[in-house]
Amino acid sequence: MLNGLAAKGQRRRRDPYSATLFARDIVQSLRRQIGFRRQGEPVDDAAVDEFLATVIWDIPV
């Protein structure tokens, strides 16, 4: 997964799905301890996954 994000795998291209997998793993780990809220309302895991995957993908190689 890390190789896909860093473009270090066999294909030597970044795999956008790897950012999604990283985000999902982070959200699942954090969800055990904390809850995600926006303006006091609970936020769905899918929304947090999508936001975090976008932020991870924007990190330069």
Results as ranks from 00 to 15, higher is better:
A53M: 04
A46V: 09
R32A: 13
R37T: 13
Q33K: 13
R12F: 08
E41V: 12
R14G: 10
W57I: 03
D45M: 04
V43S: 02
I59A: 08
R24D: 01
F36E: 07
P16E: 09
L30E: 12
E41R: 15
I56K: 03
P16R: 10
R24S: 04
P42Y: 10
E41P: 00
R13D: 08
S18D: 10
R11E: 15
P60Q: 11
V48R: 02
A46L: 09
E50P: 00
A6Y: 07
R11M: 12
A53L: 00
F51K: 01
A23P: 00
V43M: 04
V48E: 01
D25R: 08
V61F: 02
Q28K: 11
P60T: 10
Q28I: 01
L52Q: 04
F22N: 00
Q39N: 15
E50Q: 09
G35L: 05
I34P: 01
A46R: 11
W57H: 12
I34C: 13
A19K: 09
G9C: 09
P42C: 11
I59H: 05
R24Y: 00
A6C: 11
I34R: 11
A53F: 01
E50V: 04
D15M: 05
K8G: 12
D44E: 08
K8H: 11
G35A: 10
R31N: 13
T20V: 08
R24I: 03
V48Q: 03
G4T: 07
F22K: 03
I26H: 03
K8D: 11
D58F: 03
G35N: 10
A47R: 02
R12C: 12
P42W: 11
